[in-house]
Design a protein around this nucleic acid. Structure first.
Lengths: 313, 313
DNA sequence: TTTAAACATGACAACTATTGGCATGGTTTA
DNA sequence: TAAACCATGCCAATAGTTGTCATGTTTAAA
């Protein structure tokens, strides 16, 4: 085994240990103590933050920021990382103070000149945009930690009519459309609810733990493809602009039928609980669409329109 | 200099060359030809994809997938990369077939056991969600390439009233709210316009190049903070729900004034061109807000409401 | 206070790896 | 056919690594 390989193995070894002596290393790698000391001096020089304590009960230990053994990437992989970082660049608030720059610098330094230009150009023509929210989400890190360790949270939440105080079991957090959301189990009602983290007015962690009943994956899965439990038929006729708008709606696009170059309709079964949302969508569409079914949606639209006329009379 | 360091330098060296001979390497590193051959065999074994051609005019060259010299990360940096990848995981369509998994696997393998658990837990409680769009954006890669190389594009675009054919100078692409957008200069009108890439019905690259007048950064900057050229005063009173909704609007939030625990108002100067958007926003708010100024917005809301009543009479 | 257990470092001989030179042989192009 | 490449084996000279011993220092427990 080459020396380089041996040192990398040693790095792995010391990373798995809280504390160890030169004798431990000597035994593990079948070398003399003197050589063990030499090896440890080598990896220390390579940047592994070793801390030593002389005297009885002393030994070596690795400081918090553990160094990983060197990793070989190819150009495509380096681009994948740049690319992924690009997606975080414009995020208004991120959970941790993750240091993107140190990684970027290291990768960039290892790229040949022409690839650097390629990376520069990629960075200047590709972005992931998120509205620069002025309301930050200061509790993100706390929520993530609590969710990871399955600890109950006490929150004060700003909802439609009042501020409520709740005990919740967080499943995790996810970013969507510039906001951070926290699906969680409300302990009082026993129901799963979605909270927007910027609407959390106060948060306190407890030491109480819970058994995870709601997984973030499952929640997102359900978001992506939920099957209606109490189905309602929704039928609407669309003109050109209506077609265009419906195409932008993931929940409608699959059910869009074109009946001419400029006309179409949607015919879809949705869950009754989604009716307010759907009605509001078609209310916003105005004359670009005409809802034929269900009656409730039509009534909703009429009611909303009348209400506004009265409000601005 | 240790041999390992020398080999890494050699990897850098060969990555900068299209083609080279053993003699070149021998000269560059001050070693004999025999040793140059040995070094090249070494880095070949390390995974650098070397290709050799014997005979006069032959030599070594590196195949497409260039291998980068080994990079040392610490634990925080590895987490930053995992974290960034998490943000791409749920993206409906991505420009390149970037191979996130190979990077993840390498990083994961180099982590000590306890950090792996930490990474697992982080992954299961943190996500970046995007609606699973069923309309893909097949032209993303082409647009990015054209933007990077400043080549003119011919597109067929599905707009409100008709399909139009345009020649555009793309500034780049960005993802926002689950869609991909392309700010570009429309050559016919000479004006900058924003296109949604999923609404591009057809696309053709040309060999004609252009001088970049519109940079993606600038465009996004303008998105974030645009100053009105033709200012209109917007004043609206808000109840609790109205306050809550306006807080979610980056363009309104800074101008929100609370006049009581449950009431507030916004008083802001916006550009006249934004009036339709703003009017529509307050139209949607319904009775949660009452626009006092400008008259145009009030008229817009009344008109829209009346139109809907007529449409669904 | 003493002793054991740890790190730190130097010297040197034994051992191992690397190197350069030389030789031989193959492939391609002018 | 010769020149300009790569490929590989051999071997002595050189350079690097290792183990043993020796000598310090620091710390905690006996």
């Amino acid at each position: 085994m080459s020396k380089a390989k041996l040192l990398f193995d040693l790095i792995m070894y010391v990373n798995t240990k809280r504390s160890f002596t030169a004798q431990d290393v000597a035994d593990e790698f079948g070398v003399s103590i003197r050589t063990a000391h030499r090896y440890l001096a080598d990896i220390d020089e390579m940047g592994v933050p070793l801390y030593t304590e002389p005297g009885r009960g002393g030994g070596y230990r690795v400081l918090n920021n553990r160094t990983l053994p060197p990793i070989v990437f190819d150009e495509h992989e380096a681009f994948a990382i740049f690319f992924a970082f690009q997606s975080l660049r414009n995020y208004p608030s991120l959970p941790f103070n993750i240091n993107i720059n140190s990684v970027s610098r290291k990768l960039y330094a290892s790229l040949p000149a022409d690839s650097r230009h390629k990376a520069d150009r990629l960075g200047s023509v590709l972005a992931f945009w998120h509205p620069a929210k002025t309301v930050p989400s200061p509790y993100l890190s706390l929520i993530i930690e609590a969710a990871a360790e399955q600890r109950v949270l006490q929150i004060e939440y700003v909802s439609k009519n009042e501020n409520t105080r709740r005990e919740v079991e967080p499943a995790g957090v996810y970013a969507y459309g510039g906001f951070w959301y926290m699906p969680a189990l409300d302990r009082a009602s026993g129901e799963t609810r979605l909270f927007r983290t910027d609407r959390i007015a106060a948060l306190e962690g407890t030491s109480e733990t819970f058994v995870r009943q709601l997984r973030l994956d499952d929640w997102l899965q359900r978001l992506a493809a939920s099957e209606p439990k109490d189905p309602v038929r929704l039928y609407a006729e669309l003109n050109r602009e209506g077609v265009r708008q419906c195409r932008s709606q993931p929940w409608l696009e699959p059910y869009l039928v074109m009946t001419g170059p400029e006309h179409g309709h949607v015919d879809v079964e949705i869950d009754r609980s989604e009716l307010p949302f759907a009605s509001d969508f078609f209310f916003r569409l105005g004359t670009s669409a005409k809802v034929i079914e269900p009656r409730e949606a039509i009534e909703y639209i009429r009611r909303e329109a009348r209400e506004r006329l009265r409000h601005y009379s």
